[in-house]
């Protein structure tokens, strides 16, 4: 029994050909593994290494360097809360405390009992004009308040009440984009399966160009 599915291993083996040198495939490969498992287990990293003909220690060394790779179980919905200066000036620290209560965890990294939620404080995510902000399920959420946090949590607790997922909303142009486009998005693990938005070219999963 392997940690990663056979078709994912095949997909990983096809990655190196996309780059001028095969080693560049290590992060995209870890990305695929994490998407399938939710986080990177030692077994998964070893299998990635084998598939890419790299040393397992090397792959783990890369995985541990970057903050978006998780080496411990995370909640189905991970809140990345910016607490860098621009967000902190606008109340980010209080919001983190509120989030802890809302999802029922004591500290960063803890997973809520139902397995749905975890959070971490992260550095600047480059949306300072909308501070305080956070990232959940591959989308940014802006001008956060305690009420907005409650809303983000509630709609993930009761996905049935969220908008139908058959047509995942595509970002409209920035000047009229709905900040809460996430409400219709699928959870992390099913991201690759979301419906193509309008005018999208044939989609290669995680295609790099």
């Amino acid at each position: 029994m392997t940690a990663l599915s056979a078709h994912l291993i095949d997909e990983i083996k096809a990655l190196p050909a996309r780059y001028p040198q095969p080693r560049s495939a290590v992060m995209p490969a870890l990305d695929l593994a994490q998407e399938e498992l939710g986080y990177l287990t030692p077994e998964a990293m070893t299998e990635v290494a084998t598939a890419l003909q790299l040393d397992a220690g090397y792959v783990e060394g890369v995985a541990t360097f970057y903050t978006l790779f998780h080496l411990e179980p995370i909640g189905k919905h991970r809140f990345y809360m910016c607490t860098n200066l621009s967000c902190t000036l606008r109340g980010a620290e209080e919001l983190v405390e509120h989030l802890r209560g809302a999802i029922g965890v004591h500290e960063a990294g803890d997973v809520s009992k139902d397995g749905l939620f975890s959070y971490e404080e992260v550095e600047c995510m480059g949306a300072c004009e909308y501070a305080p902000m956070c990232r959940v399920d591959h989308r940014y959420h802006y001008d956060l308040t305690a009420e907005k946090i409650d809303g983000l949590v509630a709609e993930r607790r009761a996905p049935a009440s969220a908008p139908v997922q058959a047509s995942a909303p595509h970002p409209s142009p920035a000047h009229k984009r709905d900040e809460d486009v996430t409400s219709g998005l699928l959870p992390d693990g099913e991201r690759g399966a979301s419906s193509p938005p309008k005018k999208r070219a044939p989609r290669k999963k995680k295609a790099d160009g």
């Binding site: 860098n84 200066l85 621009s86 550095e123 600047c124 480059g126 949306a127 300072c128 004009e129 970002p171 142009p173 920035a174 000047h175 984009r177």
Partner: peptide, 15 residues
């Protein structure tokens, strides 16, 4: 773009 306080590249790419 990761410099704290800088979001302009995101703004340009999104638009």
């Amino acid at each position: 773009e990761s410099e704290p306080g800088s979001a302009k590249d995101r703004y340009l790419m999104e638009n």
